[in-house]
Simulated scan of single mutants.
Amino acid sequence: MNKPILFSFFSGSGFLDLGFELNGFDVQFVNEYHVPFLKAYQYSRSRLGISTPKFGVDSSDIDHLVYGEGRALLSQKVSKAKESGSPVGFIGGPPCPDFSVGGKNRGHEGENGRLTRTYVDGIIKYAPDFFIFENVKGLWRTKRHREFYEQMKANLVEAGYELADRLTNSIEYGVPQDRDRIILFGVKKASLSSKLSKPLLDALGWESYVKYDRDRILGSEAWPTTSAYREDSKLPLPKSVQGLEQLTVEYWFNKNNVSKHPNSCHHFVPRAALSRFQTIDEGDVGKKSFKRLHRWRYSPTAAYGNNEVHIHPYKSRRISAAEALAIQSLPKEFELPADMSLSNMFKTIGNGVPYLLSEGIAQMVSVFIGRYLSQELPQEHREAAQQSQ
């Protein structure tokens, strides 16, 4: 089977895409409305030697592609991809502040919340063989948001999709970060080689791709609490953390050699906060803002907007973009353009899907596709190819 083809939406700087790109998928179309993020996407791929998407990059509002004048062109691109005989998938995580308790919490009627419906409508309209939808846990756990989410799932089922979802924490995949996200996977029934004999969640074998038990890791008493802050102090790995050090901030700072990374100097320097940076204990993340990370512990959720300030464990400053990328488990070769504003750097990092999580999901989907998707062109692919001729 040829490489599965992906159409990426709400791509940001491409953290989710990268997990798929480096695990056997071919991203052929990229849509990101915020141009600085799109430029960073292109820059990072040029530095990594990844070829440009066959069907290009697009900065249109997704409404334009699903409901507006961009429909015809996107339809042609999807039809061309289907003609290749490769499985075609959509991946994306619509902006989530409207479903976040820590954000706007306006739900599906909010400016960003409505984009979830648009993405689902696009899946139904263009009928990819499979899709990935990623979003915050508020869409799963908050009652009024959950009702909307269940309605979107019902619409997808009515359109012929089998669905499986899971509230997933990034730390389960080896990311040094406590970050809950919904991952919803859907597959078009018509694209399956035969009817599944078990629930889709079991067919995916989701749990077998998880490396760590979330509750055990996050609830462990092995993690250090706080330590007195001293600039450039030395603090050996606690014996209690041995065997879990790969889930710590310091491990990833060393792994990515952050002091030598191209984005190592990219951090905010607010002069007025210097004295505050010198008085917060290492590991004190209990405040709403000004959280000092502990070098031998995992990080809180990487969220660097809305006055969320993460402070370096043993330096009197905020963390750098290089350090934030390490906390998101990006490969050390991944970098953002030097001329990108600091606000855009930290926003795209905080919005992104941690790399190791995206890699784990990509590997799971790849195995499922090879095992269950038809090796022959589905009927609807043949129809689409005939219509485009």
Rank of each mutant, 00 (worst) to 15 (best):
N256R: 04
S233F: 01
T226C: 11
D180Q: 14
G205T: 10
Y209Q: 07
S227T: 07
I217G: 05
S193K: 10
V187I: 15
N257A: 12
V241F: 09
R230D: 01
A190W: 05
G186N: 07
P238V: 00
G186K: 06
I182L: 14
L192R: 05
S220W: 05
E207M: 11
W206N: 03
E207N: 15
P236V: 02
L235H: 01
T226R: 07
R216F: 10
L235F: 01
W252K: 08
T225Q: 13
I182F: 13
N257T: 10
L184E: 11
T248H: 01
L204I: 09
D232H: 10
L196S: 02
G219S: 06
P238D: 03
D180T: 04
R214C: 13
L235I: 02
L192M: 09
I217V: 15
D180R: 10
K189R: 14
A203L: 11
K195L: 09
Y212R: 10
N257F: 04
L244D: 05
G174R: 06
A203P: 08
S197Q: 13
F253N: 02
G243W: 01
W223F: 03
T226W: 02
S240C: 01
N257L: 13
V241Q: 01
G219M: 08
V249C: 12
I217T: 15
I182T: 08
D180P: 07
N257D: 12
G219W: 08
N256T: 09
D215R: 14
S194R: 12
V210N: 06
D178W: 04
G243T: 03
K239T: 13
S220R: 08
V175C: 06
N254E: 13
P236N: 03
P238W: 02
S197R: 12
D215F: 09
S193L: 12
F185Q: 03
A203Y: 09
P224G: 02
A222S: 13
V210Y: 10
W206S: 08
L235W: 00
R181M: 08
D215P: 03
S194M: 12
S240H: 01
L237P: 00
S208K: 15
S191Q: 05
L244P: 04
L204D: 06
G186C: 06
L204C: 11
A228H: 07
S227M: 02
T225Y: 09
Y209F: 15
D215S: 15
T226P: 04
Y209R: 12
P176Q: 00
R181I: 09
F185L: 12
R230H: 01
V249D: 01
P199C: 05
P224V: 06
K195F: 07
E231K: 00
G219K: 12
S240F: 03
S197E: 11
R179M: 08
A190F: 03
S194W: 04
E221P: 00
L201I: 15
R181F: 09
D202V: 13
T248G: 02
Y251I: 08
R179Q: 05
Q177D: 03
E231L: 02
S194F: 14
S193Q: 13
K188N: 13
S194L: 04
R214F: 12
D202Q: 15
G219E: 10
E250D: 13
G186W: 05
N257W: 05
K189A: 07
D178T: 12
Y209N: 08
W252F: 10
S240N: 07
L247W: 01
D180V: 02
Y209T: 05
V241H: 08
S233Q: 14
E245Q: 14
D215M: 07
